[in-house]
Computed example of a mutant assay.
Amino acid sequence: MKLCLNTDSLGHLSFEEMVETSAKIGIESLEIACGNWSDAPHMDLDRMLADEAFRTKYMEKIHSHGLELEALNCSGNQLDPNEEGKAHQSVVEKTFQLAALLDVKKIIMMSGLPGGNPTDTTANWVTTCWPRSTHDILRYQWEDVLIPYWKKTVEQAKEYGITSIALENHGAQCVYNAETLLQLRKEAGPMVGMNLDPSHHIWMGGDGIAMALELGVEAIHHVHAKDLRKERTKFAANGGLETKSFDQYTKRSWNYVALGYGEDERWWNEFVSVLSMMGYDGPLSLEIEDQTMDSLTATKKSIQLLHRVMPRDFD
């Protein structure tokens, strides 16, 4: 397994500083966001597309520090039934174009979430089977929007040399767990796989180890090493459906944290061991959104844990 970094984790650093810091702290490859829900602190997407000399210099900086560009990330909601959805789709298409120019084979995305019917102006995430109108919403979202979109998108990706699209199991998306990923993969084909992020699955009441086993190694295209802590008393009292903003971390039922500050090291040992046992040999892409400590500190502490649990010698 390779130690990768979602570079938004060090979003306060310039591109040059991020690359130099990543190499210094032991990162081996980079997952770089191109826009949409990310501010893309390390990517000027339009300039990268337009300026060959700039692209060359960009990649030389990465390679000169012994790093690889693992994947491009354009996570957003390209199926949002409004102008934002159109803008997100534009970034997706530009990211595909850039992948071809950089010979990047893997894209990290979200599945997207449409409205509940053709006239909706906002996305609608269905999480219950009642009232019965939810069945009509799901049928519309999957049969009329999601499956046709992904069949078309897979064909577009092939034209740009992309071989893997890893969808993050995020809330407020059509694909948010093992079952929904496998359902879409059955329709859209094997290019579509999971970006397995255990943190999101935890707040929904699941377990990342169980999800990995349910998916199988063929359906796991990428793994986000990201942790979450259920806050004492608050989670038990209020559950995981949390709407308070992330900066209100003292009041929330759960928070994203550095690795080992949510699930303990024993859990992370088992998670990585099970992935290895299944035959997964791809990247563990560290993603830090801990609000309780400096992001570089959280990144370093998380790397220390990964060095102990990954099935390889880092000496």
Results as ranks from 00 to 15, higher is better:
144 D>R: 07
189 G>M: 07
212 A>Y: 06
164 S>T: 15
257 V>H: 00
178 A>T: 02
217 V>E: 14
206 G>H: 09
161 G>K: 09
252 R>C: 02
232 R>M: 11
189 G>R: 07
234 K>C: 08
137 I>W: 00
135 H>R: 12
182 L>G: 01
219 A>H: 06
160 Y>P: 09
183 Q>C: 10
202 I>M: 08
241 L>M: 11
168 E>S: 04
218 E>V: 10
240 G>P: 11
207 D>R: 05
246 F>E: 14
244 K>S: 14
192 V>E: 02
156 Q>H: 15
210 A>P: 00
206 G>Y: 03
214 E>F: 09
169 N>H: 15
179 E>T: 04
245 S>F: 08
241 L>D: 12
200 H>P: 06
193 G>M: 05
179 E>Q: 01
137 I>D: 09
223 V>Q: 08
204 M>G: 13
216 G>E: 04
181 L>E: 08
243 T>C: 14
211 M>N: 07
224 H>Y: 10
149 Y>H: 14
143 E>S: 08
132 R>Q: 12
240 G>D: 10
244 K>C: 14
220 I>G: 11
250 T>D: 11
208 G>Y: 01
194 M>W: 02
175 V>L: 11
234 K>A: 15
168 E>C: 00
171 G>R: 11
237 A>M: 12
197 D>P: 10
248 Q>Y: 10
201 H>L: 12
183 Q>N: 09
168 E>L: 01
250 T>Y: 09
197 D>F: 07
178 A>F: 03
208 G>R: 02
236 A>R: 13
257 V>T: 08
140 Y>R: 02
163 T>L: 05
195 N>Y: 03
184 L>P: 05
232 R>K: 12
167 L>E: 00
195 N>P: 09
239 G>K: 10
244 K>N: 14
238 N>T: 05
137 I>H: 06
148 P>F: 10
184 L>S: 08
191 M>G: 04
131 P>Y: 03
172 A>V: 14
165 I>L: 10
259 L>P: 01
215 L>Q: 11
159 E>L: 15
252 R>W: 03
212 A>K: 09
170 H>K: 06
160 Y>D: 05
244 K>F: 13
195 N>A: 06
153 T>C: 05
165 I>F: 02
206 G>S: 11
247 D>W: 12
130 W>R: 01
190 P>N: 15
177 N>V: 04
133 S>M: 00
